[in-house]
Design a protein around this nucleic acid. Structure first.
Length: 578
DNA sequence: CTTTCTCTAAAGTGCACTGTGGCCAGTGC
C-alpha cells in the first residue's frame, strides 16, 4: 500500500466519522494524520510496517496501529466496516458547495438520497424544500451547485495533468521506434485548464506505437485504437489521444494539433495568400503562381515560410500574436530559468507544512538566491495567522539566519489581510519593519464589485503594500472569482507602483493570463509566487513561468527575475520610485 | 484521536455569513 493510499483512507475515515456525528476532534485527528503521512520526510510505509512510528507528532496509539495494519495487510478492517455503513455515492455529495456532513446525513436519513443524481432529481421534484434545515433558497443553491459541477466534468487543471503527461511522454520516448515525441493542444499552450491531452509521435512504425500506447500503465479504458491514432481514458478520467505521423509530417502535425483553432485559421489564411494550403501533414500548392514550397524540418520553419517570427505555443490564441510576428515585435518571453527568487510562501508559523529553515533549504536546492516568507496575518484565524509579537519573532529569526549565509537571503514579509474597508490587518509601523508585504483578500467574498474594487484599491494605496496577492480569489473548477474590476485595479497598480502577483498555485493561477498583456503595457510589474505551503510546492514556479509567458511577460516585467543585489536595492526604494 | 502546564482528565483556531425557523445550525475560510 502506497503512502498516498494510506492518506486517502485516513481522510475517508474522517468524512465517515463526520457522517456519524463523531467528536469533531477525532475527525480532525484523522485529517491531520493524513497530512502527516503525505508530508512525512521518510519512508513512512516501511516505518509503519516495521511498527516504528512511536514518537511521530500527530500519530498517536490508535493511528499508529491502523497505519501498521494498512502497511502490513493492505487493508484496514475499521475502514472497511465503516464504509459498509454508508452508500459510496454519498462521498461525491461533499464536493458540492454548501453541503457538509450534517446536511448530507439529513438528506440520506430523511430522503434516502445517496448520490448527486438522486439529489438533483429531488431538487427538481421540489422535495428538498421543507425538509428540516432545508428551504426554498437552499434547494435553489444546491441545484446551482450541481449545474456548476456538471459543466466542469471532464475539465482538469494544468497542475493536475502535468505529471501525468510528462510520465506518458517519458514512456513513449522509451519506445525504440519513437523518433520525436511531444504533447500538443491546450496543455502545450499552457491553458489553466484542459479538456484532453493530445500526444504526438514521429515514427516509421505507427501501428506499433499506437498498440504500445494503449497498453501503457495508468489507462482505464481504450476508446479507439487504429493504425495512426488511439484514444484512451486515463485512470483519473482524462481523455488522451495519440497520433503517430512520419518524421517529415511531424512539424506540421505539432503545429496543427497545438492550436488554438483560431490561431491555425489565421495561419492557413496567410498560407493561402502565398498560394499554399496548410494542413496537419504538409504544405501543398493550390495555385499555379504559388511560390515554391519551403523546406520544413521543424515547427519554426513553418512560421518562417509564412513570413512570421516564431510564435511560442503559449501565445497562440489569435490575440495579436500573428500581427506582432509579422511586424517582428513579439516579446522575448520570460523563462523559468530566469527566476532568482519568490515572495509569497508560508511556514509552520501559520498554515504551512514546513519550517522556515526547511523552506529556505528547499529554495536553495531549487537554485534560487532568495525566498520571501509571507505567513498569514492575525485575522486569518483559520490559518493560524500571526499576531504582532509572533511576526516580530519571525522577523528576528530571519535576520539571524541571514547573518550566517551571504549567498542566500530570506526576505521577511507578511501576507496581510485586506480588511472589509480596505485597511490592513497590521499597523503601518509594524509593516514598515518588514522587507515587503503581500496584501490579500481572504473573507467577505460576496461584496459588490464596486465595494470589492474600492477595498482593494485602498489597500494598494498603502505605501507598505509591495504587491497584491491572488487578485480574484478564484479556485479553478471549484470556486468562482469574487467580483472585482480588473481594469481599475490594473490602473491603480500602475499609478501606485504596486506589483500584482501571478499566484502560480495550480488551483489559482490568479491574476488570469488574459489580463497580463494589458497590465504590462501600463507598466505594472509581476511577481510569480507559488503560495507554497510545503517545500515541494515551490515547484509551482514552473507553472508560473508558463502562465507569465502566456500573458506576454518578458524577463524585466517579473520582479523575481531580479538578482539578489537588484531586488534588495529595489525593495529599499520608496514605492513611488520603483 | 492526540497532546499535555499529565499521570486521568481536560482542551483542542474563531469568526462571519447564509438561511431557516423562531433567536440557532451549518458551512467555509
Amino acid at each position: 500500500m502506497s503512502r498516498e493510499e494510506m492518506a486517502t483512507i485516513l481522510e475517508e475515515i474522517a468524512l465517515l466519522l463526520e457522517l456519524k456525528d463523531e467528536n469533531p476532534f477525532k475527525t480532525k485527528a484523522y485529517r491531520a494524520g493524513a497530512e502527516t503521512v503525505r508530508s512525512f520526510p521518510d519512508d513512512i510505509v516501511a516505518l509503519a510496517a516495521a511498527n516504528e512510528l512511536k514518537g511521530v507528532k500527530g500519530i498517536g496509539e490508535a493511528l499508529r496501529d491502523k497505519l501498521h495494519e494498512m502497511a502490513t495487510t493492505g487493508t484496514l478492517a475499521f475502514h472497511t466496516n465503516l464504509r459498509a455503513e454508508f452508500p459510496s455515492g454519498l462521498f461525491e455529495l461533499f464536493e458540492l458547495q454548501g453541503l457538509g456532513a450534517k446536511k448530507i446525513k439529513t438528506l440520506h436519513r430523511d430522503l434516502s438520497i445517496t448520490s448527486i443524481a438522486d439529489l438533483k432529481q429531488a431538487c427538481i421534484e421540489n422535495r428538498i424544500a421543507g425538509t428540516p434545515g432545508f428551504g426554498e433558497k437552499t434547494q435553489k443553491n444546491l441545484l446551482e451547485a450541481i449545474t456548476h459541477r456538471e459543466s466542469h466534468v471532464g475539465i482538469f487543471r494544468l497542475g493536475t495533468v502535468a505529471h501525468v503527461v510528462e510520465d506518458l511522454l517519458q514512456q513513449l520516448r522509451e519506445h525504440p521506434d519513437a523518433l520525436r515525441v511531444a504533447a500538443c493542444g491546450s496543455y502545450r499552450r499552457a491553458k489553466e485548464t484542459v479538456h484532453d491531452i493530445d500526444l504526438l509521435v514521429a515514427t516509421a512504425a505507427p501501428a506499433e506505437l499506437t498498440a504500445y500506447f494503449t497498453s501503457l500503465h495508468g489507462i482505464q479504458k481504450v476508446l479507439a485504437h487504429g493504425e495512426t491514432k488511439a484514444s484512451v481514458i486515463l485512470d483519473n478520467g482524462l481523455q488522451c489521444d495519440l497520433r503517430a505521423v512520419s518524421n517529415t509530417q511531424f512539424p506540421f502535425a505539432l503545429q496543427y494539433f497545438s492550436g488554438s483553432k483560431e490561431h491555425n485559421v489565421a495561419l492557413r489564411q496567410l498560407a493561402l495568400r502565398k498560394g499554399w494550403s496548410l494542413n496537419e501533414y504538409d504544405f501543398t500548392q493550390v495555385r499555379d503562381d504559388a511560390a515554391p514550397l519551403p523546406n520544413v524540418h521543424e515547427e519554426k520553419d513553418i512560421y518562417q515560410a509564412l513570413g512570421l517570427q516564431f510564435i511560442e505555443p503559449e501565445l497562440r490564441e489569435n490575440l495579436g500574436e500573428i500581427e506582432a510576428a509579422q511586424e517582428g515585435t513579439l516579446p522575448r518571453l520570460v523563462e523559468w530559468s530566469n527566476l532568482r527568487g519568490t515572495f509569497h510562501n508560508h511556514t509552520t508559523e501559520s498554515d504551512g507544512k514546513n519550517s522556515l529553515e526547511e523552506m529556505a533549504a528547499a529554495a536553495q536546492e531549487l537554485g534560487l538566491q532568495y525566498l520571501g516568507i509571507a505567513d498569514h496575518s492575525k485575522s486569518s484565524f483559520q490559518a493560524r495567522g500571526l499576531h504582532e509579537d509572533r511576526l516580530l519573532q519571525q522577523v528576528a529569526l530571519i535576520r539571524e539566519l541571514n547573518a550566517h549565509d551571504k549567498n542566500f537571503k530570506i526576505f521577511a514579509g507578511s501576507e496581510v489581510d485586506i480588511l472589509k474597508d480596505g485597511t490592513l490587518d497590521y499597523s503601518d509601523d509594524l509593516l514598515s519593519q518588514l522587507d515587503y508585504c503581500v496584501a490579500s483578500v481572504h473573507n467577505l467574498f460576496s461584496l459588490s464589485e464596486e465595494d470589492m474594487t474600492k477595498r482593494i484599491i485602498r489597500a494598494m494605496e498603502n505605501e507598505h503594500v509591495t504587491m497584491l496577492g491572488h487578485l480574484t480569489g478564484r479556485l479553478l473548477l471549484k470556486r468562482e472569482s469574487y467580483a472585482v474590476n480588473h481594469s481599475k485595479i490594473i490602473d491603480c497598480a500602475a499609478e501606485t507602483r504596486t506589483v500584482i502577483e501571478l499566484n502560480c498555485n495550480p488551483m489559482r493561477l490568479d491574476m488570469d493570463w488574459r489580463w497580463w498583456h494589458r497590465a504590462r503595457d501600463k507598466g505594472v510589474l509581476c511577481s510569480i509566487n507559488p503560495d507554497a505551503h510545503a517545500t515541494a510546492q515551490l515547484q509551482f514556479l514552473h507553472f508560473g513561468a508558463r502562465l507569465a509567458r502566456k500573458g506576454w511577460l518578458r524577463r524585466d516585467d517579473v520582479i523575481n527575475t531580479f538578482s539578489l543585489e537588484k531586488i534588495t536595492a529595489w525593495l529599499q526604494q520608496p514605492k513611488a520610485q520603483r
